[in-house]
Amino acid sequence: MTRYAKDQRVPVTLAVNGHEYRRWIEPRLLLSDFLRDELGLTGTHVGCEHGVCGACTILFNGAPVRSCLKLAIDVGDGQITTIEGLVKDDEFDAFRQAFSQNHALQCGFCTPGVVVSVWEALKRASDSESVDWNDVLSGHLCRCTGYVGIRRAIMALQAKGGGKTEA
């Protein structure tokens, strides 16, 4: 058993986008703040800090989660992928095009979170899992698009072979 005092700085090593980062942090530091302030990965946006808006969504061991509801100290050896990690993927170009051509974003603040969730759900869809897109998208608040462009982008990506369900 290990106990860290509240005012102690604790050494942690986090695996983010395929790199290991070692930092000294307070036990209470939120993962969203760790990514933004300690690593400078400002693509993860903070919109509500109570788990509703979805702007801070990242992949944790491949599953989409809210980084504002996770403590950096509690991540352990979990693999974290942020929007900056997805951008490096070869398949991301098609993704970016689909979002842009279908005007799936306006102010762009919710976008990285939306992209992370849609990316993961499309992977599941291409593994022949059935994906309920209302379920996926309802985990994100977008105040600009009325979600119309986002649905169109998903349909375009699926038409290119990214899964079997309809948006």
Binding site: G43, T44, R96, F99, L105, G108, F109, T111
Partner: peptide
């Protein structure tokens, strides 16, 4: 015409006040 703004925003490279 799709937007020139989109690339940076989709990539998470927008520059917002908190950044």
């Amino acid at each position: 015409i799709p937007r020139f703004e989109d690339g940076r925003l989709i990539n998470g490279q927008g520059q917002f006040i908190a950044d």
